[in-house]
């Protein structure tokens, strides 16, 4: 296997998704088609040679040729995310290498199987890549998304998810707001719990493949609850982004 080499991507667009989330569109000299769910490693270098590396999931589907979208949440005091948010503009170059990851990926062989996506915050990013690719290939496997966000303003890809649901009868998404819900909201307003997951799982006639992504605590909880609800462990794919708060 050839080494996955570092390359310099050019920032060709920056999309403000929410007050604290931006999508950076990078044009890559050596783009290779990714599988939905994979990530890139991103490396920043200071003038004195100091380097910092982080992983970022790819938000764009493989149908978007020659470029990748990285959708990144600004973390207060975050070394890499804060620099990207505050210091990067269109035309800048960013070092990345990828695509990486062979497990948390939605494979061709899964296309006909029912699918349950569970995401929290920026954990929506690789799930969005799955949904975008699924839509591009017009898959019709029953697919549901349970998405935990703090507030309506902090919902990443909210409108696109609404649009996908309007166009595709085999897809539906449920949002739960953990801090503040929209006015007149009658849906979930708490962290993901067993009842919420049971309601999702109850919509399927056979156990769905489950992809869970977000902060470690959420992934840990949802994965264990899905096992309690009778989903076989090998059906559960988990990607933990880490804790956003130091302890």
């Amino acid at each position: 296997m050839a080494r996955i080499e570092w390359q310099l991507g050019e920032v060709i667009a920056i999309i403000q998704e929410t007050p604290t989330v931006k999508t950076f569109r990078l044009k890559l000299p050596n783009w290779t088609a990714q599988l939905p769910g994979q990530h890139y490693d991103l490396r920043l270098t200071a003038e004195d040679g100091y380097q910092a590396e982080r992983s970022y999931s790819i938000a764009s589907p493989p149908e978007q040729l020659g470029e990748i979208d990285l959708t990144i949440e600004w973390l207060e005091e975050g070394e890499v995310s804060a620099y990207l948010h505050e210091g990067v503009t269109i035309g800048d170059l960013i070092e990345v290498r990828g695509p990486i990851g062979g497990y948390f990926v939605w494979q061709k062989t899964m296309v006909n199987k029912p699918l349950l996506l569970v995401g929290g915050g920026s954990g929506i990013v690789p799930l969005m890549a799955i949904l975008r690719h699924r839509s591009a290939i017009k898959a019709t496997n029953p697919t549901r998304l349970l998405y935990s966000v703090r507030t309506p303003e902090e919902t990443i890809f909210g409108q696109e998810l609404d649009r996908l649901m309007g166009q595709d009868a085999t897809f539906s998404r449920t949002i739960t707001y953990t801090r503040q819900a929209p006015e007149h909201w009658t849906g979930n307003r708490r962290r993901i719990n067993k009842e919420m997951l049971a309601r999702e799982v109850g919509q399927y006639t056979e156990p769905p493949l489950c992809f869970i992504c977000g902060p470690t605590e959420l992934v840990e909880l949802a994965a264990n609850l899905l096992v309690d609800l009778g989903i076989p462990a090998p059906y559960i794919y988990a990607e933990r982004f880490g804790t956003t708060r130091p302890t």
Partner: peptide, 23 residues
């Protein structure tokens, strides 16, 4: 190549024990 304006954010007392790319 370097990213203009980027620098270490959190002081690191263990720099010599930190492998490349780690924090």
């Amino acid at each position: 190549f370097f990213n203009p304006g980027f620098g270490r954010k959190h002081p690191n007392q263990y720099a010599d024990r930190l492998p490349p790319g780690q924090y």
